[in-house]
Nucleic acid binder design. Sequence first.
DNA 1: ACCTGAACACCGTTCAAGT
DNA 2: ACCTGAACACCGTTCAAGT
Lengths: 204, 204
Amino acid sequence: MPAKRPAVPLSHERIIEAALHIADGQGLRRLTMRRLGDALQVEAMAIYHHLPRGKEALMDALAEHVTAVTVEPSDGGWQEIARAWAHAGRSALLEHPGVLALALTKPPQGGALMAIREQAEQLAASGLGDAARAAQAVRTLRAYVMGSVAVEIQRSGWAAPTGGDEDEQALLPALASGGAEPPEEAAAAFERGLEALLRGLSRT
Amino acid sequence: MPAKRPAVPLSHERIIEAALHIADGQGLRRLTMRRLGDALQVEAMAIYHHLPRGKEALMDALAEHVTAVTVEPSDGGWQEIARAWAHAGRSALLEHPGVLALALTKPPQGGALMAIREQAEQLAASGLGDAARAAQAVRTLRAYVMGSVAVEIQRSGWAAPTGGDEDEQALLPALASGGAEPPEEAAAAFERGLEALLRGLSRT
DNA sequence: ACCTGAACACCGTTCAAGT
DNA sequence: ACCTGAACACCGTTCAAGT
């Protein structure tokens, strides 16, 4: 007769992966230790063996997962490097919209903190200016990236203006033709804002 | 003998106010229908009479509360108007850090949607350009404001580098002397980033 | 109209126990 | 070392009932 249950043993990575799948598919509020256990074919309590701080540790790990990005150092100018970081950051956040609230809210730890430091070092080394100037640029760029993804996710939840609801319809400006927005439009809007920001960062 | 309980009757506003107090003071995860009822000296189930969709309606209302800002139309240039909206938006979000995750994540509704439209109209009317240009500017500014507050809140939760934890300490760049940041520094960083963004928005 | 009480189907987490 | 089962103190929400 076949072995009973743990075809593949539990691991930190398998837990994170399953948790992301649930959060993205059903929403963060439905990510439950019991549901997570079910998805992993294990009793919920088994998870505590790998994540001793329980759900809090799980949340921390999820935030770090979508926020700890890496960018190969390049010999381009600082603007090119800034672009690379911005694109990498946006992609990582966008891949797992279900945990965006955590990513924007939890203090960066571990790999996320490393990413911030590396970004500052690369910008300073590529001619942006001294450490303080680079730190300010990183902060501003991070704010823009995180906020842009927030706007993008918010938009994907906008209700299309139903014919019957004239009240809502009157509120929708040119800026929002209403309803969900095609990904290319969101990407183009991100690009335009990023270029504006880089222009602003370069003058003084 | 005195009347029993409802010295002051329940109302939408009292509920929101109490909920914000709990979320800011103890965190969103501890904002519970039962705890909210306690704070209002009422059984939790009484809240459903004013918020028929229950906790979901409460969350929506909280997000709208910190996100539906107003700015008096002024005769300044578009940059001055953009500054006013950015400052108002940041202040409103910063006043209730406990519900930031909701504010950045829920699609804007009602007053929040009105705010977006008004901002676009004011910018277009004050010389920024046509409706499309104004819409792009609003989007970029909103992203920057929301992201900036996210960075600020994240920082307020940063652990100070304890002497014993050399690993974390090594990760903290010039950009993060470590530990919480004084509010004036956060405000100054916001201002510098905002000015860079406005510069970038004005060229082309 | 507004609020309560009891009930139901879930939660996170602990702890002793199994293998 | 890794997982289970039972238990505890909570959750959100429904529904009939009170005033």
